[in-house]
């Protein structure tokens, strides 16, 4: 199972890099979204996969008696999903507002914060 997921993570990272190379900012934020999902999958895989054993300790025991699934990676991913979801929502709104104000999502033409010297001597 791990090798398959590792390959999937690799493919997702590759797609992310491809999207980052685009000039369209919309593609770049899709890349960011994909990157965070790839990262969650990576944490999931790195935490070790255990099939069909719940992270439960039998009644009366203080330590697990046999191998159990590790619940921590899922807690980490849950935290990371919530955060990346919120930030992605923010980025979408920011992109929309920027598109309204700047009339472009082409990163080459977004020069309002750093005007080119030749154009206006700023």
């Amino acid at each position: 199972m791990e090798p398959i997921l590792a390959v999937v993570v690799g493919i997702l990272f590759a797609i992310t890099v491809f999207l980052f190379l685009s000039r369209s900012y919309v593609r770049i934020i899709l890349g960011i979204f994909l990157l965070s999902n790839a990262t969650h999958l990576l944490i999931f895989t790195m935490g070790g996969l255990t099939l069909e054993v719940p992270p439960l300790i039998p009644p009366g025991a203080t330590v697990p008696t046999e191998a159990i699934a590790n619940p921590l990676p899922q807690a980490l991913i849950l935290t990371a999903i919530v955060i990346s979801f919120a930030l992605f929502a923010f980025l979408l709104v920011l992109t929309y507002r920027a598109y309204q104000a700047l009339h472009t999502v082409d990163v080459d033409e977004m020069r309002d914060a750093e005007p080119l010297v030749e154009e206006d001597g700023a």
């Binding site: 770049i28 960011i32 990262t39 977004m110 309002d112 914060a113």
Partner: peptide, 30 residues
């Protein structure tokens, strides 16, 4: 306008940086 433009660059690169941080942390935990 300039703020929105600056914010887009700031937000993208900072999000990218924290995602790298998260990737590294995932690997370290493994």
């Amino acid at each position: 306008k300039a703020q929105l433009d600056g914010a887009i660059k700031y937000a993208t690169l900072n999000l990218l940086a924290t995602t790298f941080f998260l990737i590294a942390t995932g690997l370290l935990y493994g």
